[in-house]
Design a protein around this nucleic acid. Structure first.
Length: 479
RNA sequence: CUGGAUAUAGCUCAGACUGGUAGAGCGCUUGCUUCGGGAGCAAGAGGCCGCAGGUUCAAAUCCUGUUAUCCAGACCA
């Protein structure tokens, strides 16, 4: 049991903070609500970026960069957009030693500046679709912050596309939602539920907002990524017009979609245990760490020679950067074990004099602590297989946990009972009105996470108002 | 912004009621012994007690003000 980490059962929020501190993922900045992402944490973000960036490009998108500062007047052009973001904008009023003619806002998101540029670039249907992504930081002045989950400044990617038709924009919106879903499930080993946000939870200015939601170990839901069909709202606000195939001047249909460093928080809260972080192998910057063990000087030499051999062999199949040999001589093996356990490295290989003799290594899985001696001969096959088992096991464990904490309820009393018993994902009928959703939120702190796509249509009545409902929606307390 | 709490070593905190040379544990440094799941001993380094005033021969301690942080609410990826 780790001494520096509070048990999950004792205090989950404290556990979360302890894991981040112990794993050296991030630290607090002197500026309230801002976060320093430390090398170990940033490496996870880089791994996420690498996979997603490739997928974005494979689906036809290109990267560009739009500026941090946006004229304040841009934000006010789309009515819902300004209403949604006004409370959390950071505004630059002075620069170069004097007051600015027009205030600049630090981007909370880039729909407006990109809309402005798209209006310049799009003239004809031949310019469409326009499919651009950017990796950037954004700033939203949050009142209460938590590392990775909600910070004043955070890193993300935002895709912004423009299309000829509603259908094409809708296709793009759902395609990118699927990209997120696949990434989260296959790489991050986080099972997610995809669906649409209800009217009152939509992105400010969006026609429709879609989301992927995941269940954390404390039974709260986390929105991990979103994809918006913006309709023609931003096109109209920013005059993104093009001449169509039949020579008509038309407004373009736009989308935007994004995911953030919050995903790191999701990985921590879905997979971590009381000893700290557990990173799924496909995501892990370091997949395998080799820890040498020896007493005498002559042992040291043999052990290192053997360890280097293992490192080289695994480097060939896993990639050199994903295998690490902990050659720090000032730490004892047991200290190194904990060092890497707390950083979530999925597999450790202990290499001592006994392993030199047997030409093998003792593997120890991070997820279930299982030990297995693996001979050098079969390492190139067996280690990737173990990593695959870990990856699959983490997903299955998370999925089982989610299913164990997913329930259908028929009445509001039942609904409250589930929350009182520890919560989870609750599928219930809802009449579609904001008033009902608000009442539920005020009384239980649970919100509608999404209208899930995997749930079939089903006649029913709202558990509050008794009015007809066509489908169950997903409720949960959330971050 | 509204309630409640707290500011003393890198971290967690004691000391304050009853004013009198700044403390502990962990961490850090050095040395020796250890080393297959967080080691032991020894010697060290490290603090304008959040900040500004006041009372006093004397303030971490008493008084006033101020700032910041944490928890709970309103907002949110």
């Amino acid at each position: 049991m780790a001494k520096n980490i509070t048990a999950r059962a004792e205090n989950f929020p404290q556990w979360y903070q302890d894991v981040i501190a112990a794993g050296e993922l991030a630290d607090h900045s002197p500026v309230k609500g801002c976060m320093v992402i430390r090398p170990t944490g940033y490496a996870i973000w880089e791994a996420m970026q690498a996979t997603l960036d490739r997928t974005f490009k494979e689906t036809g998108h290109v990267n560009a960069y739009f500026p941090l500062l946006i004229p304040e007047s841009f934000i006010t052009k789309e009515a819902e957009h300004v209403e949604g973001f006004a409370p959390e904008l950071a505004v630059v009023t002075h620069a170069g030693g004097k007051e600015l003619e027009e205030n600049l806002v630090i981007r909370p998101t880039s729909e407006t500046i990109i809309g402005h540029m798209y209006a310049k670039w799009i003239k004809s249907y031949r310019d469409l679709p326009l499919l651009i992504n950017q990796w950037a930081n954004v700033m939203r002045w949050e009142l209460r912050t938590r590392l990775f989950l909600r910070t004043t400044e955070f890193l993300w990617q935002e895709g912004h596309t423009a299309h000829e038709t509603y259908e094409e924009a809708q296709g793009e919106t759902l395609k990118m939602l699927q990209v997120y879903q696949d990434f989260l499930q296959e790489v991050c080993a986080i099972p997610v539920i995809a669906g649409a946000k209800p009217e009152h939870e939509k992105f400010p200015g969006a026609r429709d907002t879609y989301t992927v939601e995941a269940l954390m170990q404390d039974n709260k839901a986390l929105q991990i990524a979103t994809s918006h069909n913006l309709g023609q709202n931003f096109a109209k606000a920013f005059e993104i017009k093009y001449l169509s195939r039949d020579n008509q001047l038309e407004y373009a249909w736009t989308t935007s979609w994004g995911c953030t460093t919050r995903m790191i928080g999701g990985v921590i809260m879905v997979h971590g245990d009381d000893d700290g972080l557990i990173i799924p192998p496909k995501l892990a910057p370091t997949q395998v760490v080799i820890v040498p063990i020896f007493k005498r000087a002559e042992e040291r030499e043999q052990v290192y020679e053997h360890a280097e051999k293992i490192k080289a062999k695994l480097g060939q199949v896993l990639g050199k950067l994903r295998v690490s040999l902990d050659s720090r001589d000032d730490l004892r093996p047991s200290d190194k074990f904990f060092h890497w356990v707390q950083r979530g490295v999925p597999l450790r290989i202990e290499v001592g004099p006994m392993d030199v003799k047997k030409q093998s290594g003792m593997t120890v899985r991070r997820d279930n602590r299982a030990k297995e001696p693996v001979s050098l001969e079969v390492m190139a096959e067996r280690i990737p297989a173990i990593l695959a088992e870990i990856q699959a096991g983490l997903y299955q464990t998370a999925l089982d946990r989610r299913e164990a904490h997913s329930v259908q309820v028929e009445s509001y009393a039942e609904f409250k009972e589930v929350l009182a018993q520890g919560g989870g994902l609750i599928y219930a009928h809802w009449d579609g009105t904001r008033e009902t959703a608000q009442q539920i939120q005020e009384e239980t702190k649970a919100t509608i996470r999404c209208i899930p796509t995997h749930v079939p249509a089903e006649e029913g009545v709202c558990m509050i108002s008794g009015k007809p409902s066509e489908q169950r929606v997903l409720f949960a307390q959330s971050y």
